[in-house]
Design a protein around this nucleic acid. Structure first.
Lengths: 228, 228
DNA sequence: TCAAAAGTGTTATCACTACACCCATGG
DNA sequence: CCATGGGTGTAGTGATAACACTTTTGA
């Protein structure tokens, strides 16, 4: 029996959530779009395999990764029995584009326009999104999608996009600022307005201490449909 | 590479949380205490394997089961490479004792007195408990541990035991009753007091609809230490 | 009759929601 | 000078937390 790891790699470009897909260079399903994946080697853990595979594609290290439930339908891969363990990763889309590895013909797709994927990769993506919505409502993980410095309007757009909701600017700002997660910078981002929006950065200490704590950003009613 | 499933089976006896362990009848680690487990067959999914293995030991069907993250240290099993996928199950301890299968020398252990387990099973149990605490704080899953009819004091003891906290009886009652999860029966349980406590049963419809929704029973501060 | 557990209300505090105007700037 | 997006405060409402006495009944 083989065990594989598949990476669902999320990015956010300021407007849309994207996932990174590759075009398979080998049979079966050559040329079809697929998640980046690979077999687990005899001397590595699943986490190590996932890191290795993500690094192969993106060149990135130290990326947020989260193991999902295994996919184990006996016939999910028509050639042989492969149990797949998907990993959700969140990356800063800008960091990636600097380190791109073109061997895999990778491309970002908006999550609203995902092509048909091989095997059960489509289900994996759907589940990954559900889980992202669930988890992001309780824990401040979405910061992983942003660059070091970001603005409050960017942050808000990111949350609004994930749940397809409108949030109140004032309430959102208050909640985030009172969370102690943010550190205000002195400079502004003027790319999207004339006035400019102040940059913020993560309070790293506080962030790592609180990643596993419950710290809801959106309200319960917004996530009820997205439960794990 | 082999893939195995291990079952962490929780029960609650009215006072303590217990897990069901077996005494291994074969090498390696013969006679040592261990989780009930088994290899995944070529024609079954992981969920099916977990159900099969749980049924072998307990005789039970339709049990709450939840897949955890895989354990994949290359040397976790000294004989050969086995990736283990643990499953948390919650069962009504009374139902089990009626259907006990003695082939496996199974025994309930209080979670405060768990013996040394083989391989990394001890870590699995610890992680399972953490996850149970996390999940039970957000979703009404602990009912799976109780018989059809139960009392509010029982329920409260169960929550208090899991988090090692004291809850206010009035606030707890109010929260549970306002949740719509419970249906009051006409009879009382007189086994633990002279006055007797009314039995309640689950509103099944509402329960299944809301299992995946967020419905906190204990407060955030109680679960912060137990995050996934 | 009394010991032991069950049941029941009220108030204060805190978190969440809704809502509208002024500010700064580049063009 | 004006169009555009950024920034800020307050009041009402609902949820949570703290708190103590009465009821029932078997022994």
């Amino acid at each position: 029996m083989l065990v594989a790891v598949d990476c669902i790699i999320f990015g956010f470009d300021g407007t849309d959530y994207k996932i990174l897909l590759i075009q398979r260079g080998f049979a079966p399903e050559k040329e079809k779009w697929s998640l980046m994946g690979g077999f687990v080697q005899m001397d590595e853990t699943l986490d190590e395999a996932a890191k290795r595979i993500l690094n192969q594609l993106t060149g990135l290290h130290d990326v947020y990764m989260d193991q999902m439930s295994a996919f184990s339908q006996p016939l999910r891969d028509p050639i042989e029995r492969v149990i797949a363990v998907p990993y959700v990763s969140l990356i800063d889309i800008e960091k990636y584009s600097k380190q791109i590895n073109n061997d895999f013909h990778a491309k970002w797709f908006s999550i609203r326009e995902i092509p048909k994927l091989i095997f059960d990769h489509g289900d994996m993506v759907e589940l990954a999104l559900q889980q992202l919505r669930y988890k992001a409502a309780l824990h401040p993980i979405l910061f992983e999608l942003l660059p070091e410095k970001f603005t409050l309007p960017q942050l808000q757009t990111m949350y609004e996009g994930l749940y397809d909701i409108k949030l109140d600017k004032r309430n959102f700002t208050r909640k985030l600022l009172s969370s102690n997660l943010l550190h205000k910078e002195n400079d502004k981002d003027k790319s999207s307005s004339k006035k400019g929006a102040y940059y913020y950065s993560l309070n790293e200490d506080f962030y790592t201490r609180n990643l596993s704590n419950i710290l809801p950003i959106v309200s319960k009613s917004d996530i009820s449909l997205a439960a794990e």
